[in-house]
Design a protein around this nucleic acid. Structure first.
Lengths: 226, 226
DNA sequence: TCAAAAGTGTTAAGTTTACACCCATGA
DNA sequence: TCATGGGTGTAAACTTAACACTTTTGA
């Protein structure tokens, strides 16, 4: 390529780091990894990877997520760019953090194992490399402040879920208990959370109705609200 | 430097683009520039610059802001990273967008002139280079949704301002008119907006009390709210 | 028959919105 | 003296929060 005006400026490694949230046993968890390369090999860190030539940064994040979980089409939001000069002690790396919400039952455990990746409760995160803890903090803040505004929680649950499960998820994310009747009233006002004919019998003798998130209904709802 | 594990990965130009908001004559405005270099020299764009070696990305944004406005210590928030492969038609550039709020009276007009930079009403933005319009859209969304939650509007006003000026600023940002009494009631509940002894006589015969934002009182308030 | 989770409405408290007049002053 | 923007409180509408019992069924 011919030299451009741009050529005089320095170039940098650019990475993506993924804060992968999952929900299991009533706890909000994050997927952490023992770093597979030097420097700091073996230390706890987020899952990340370098952006490739001819790869959008969001595609890089999707690729990392696919490699680590086996899932395509994961719900993902950019948290922001982290670019302090000395944030990475190996070499200068500018990193873009992405938060992802996954249904933990959907994860390929074998892939996790191959990458030394483990789920850790959000409240039990060990010391992490570089600024990864700050990334988690910002991602959690995003999750916490969006959970009541946008229907994103569903990505952490199986396709069918009971209202009790949904409420417990909200409670885990907000770290406070919610009133059952008020919670169900609010959910009842969301036309995109649909009761199905299915009944879950694993959690109680009586059985609980299973609900699903209807994405199409949600789009209708959004257009209607404009 | 010795080759590291990182060396095998590609490097990229990294830029910052600044969405600089100002408020003048009752209108919310953005500082735009006629691009000073090829490709697309002369086209309208945001103000930006390349990140340097040994420069934090936020420092790069501050530097661009200083070069263009003559002000240090500008209020600034990161909007996000933009990294589509072909977003910049010159060469691949990953860009971090920053929104800045400035007191437009404080700006060095000479510097603006030297950089072919002009203030344009938000509602009158011409076609812009690359994804710059999307950056403005996201920055405006941030401003609009934060203005009612956090005391950031003051950065767009002179140090002393009347409540009418403040209300008009809010109205310009929200693009809707507000009730004077309700507005003043809400402001009255904010201990960090202090009435000063000064009176502004330029806008009315009677004169209006001038207020200021007290940063220290705001910190107290935040700690108290925890 | 009882233990365990599911499901269901009403009232009080708090917040937000709507609304209209008097004041002080310079021209 | 009047035109102009500055300043002030109250009541209705709406939203949020608090609260307890009945239902179903498998063990």
């Amino acid at each position: 390529m011919a030299p451009t005006f741009y050529s005089q400026y320095p170039k940098f490694h650019v990475a993506v780091d993924c804060i992968i949230f999952g929900y299991q046993a009533g706890k909000l968890k994050v997927l952490l990894q023992q770093r597979p390369f030097e420097p700091h090999k073996g230390d706890w860190s987020l899952l990340g990877g370098f952006v490739q030539e001819n790869e959008d940064i969001s595609a890089a994040a999707q690729r990392v997520l696919l490699e680590l979980t086996g899932i395509t089409n994961i719900f993902m939001t950019q948290i922001g760019a982290f670019g302090s000069v000395h944030r990475d002690t190996g070499d200068r790396v500018i990193s873009i953090a992405y938060a992802a919400l996954v249904d933990i039952n959907n994860i390929d455990e074998q892939l996790n194992h191959e990458h030394s990746a483990y789920w850790e409760e959000l409240s039990q995160i060990p010391p992490l490399l570089f600024d990864h803890k700050e990334m988690i903090k910002q991602a959690y803040h995003m999750l916490r402040s969006n959970i009541g505004r946008k229907p994103i929680g569903f990505h952490l649950l199986p396709p069918l879920f009971t209202l009790t499960q949904l409420q417990q998820l909200y409670e885990a994310i907000l770290n406070e208990s919610l009133d059952k009747r008020n919670f169900r009233k609010r959910i009842g006002e969301m036309p995109y959370i649909e009761k199905t004919a299915e009944i879950d019998r694993t959690s109680s003798k009586r059985g609980a109705a299973l609900y699903k998130f209807n994405e199409q209904a949600y789009c209708h709802y959004l257009n209607f609200r404009l």
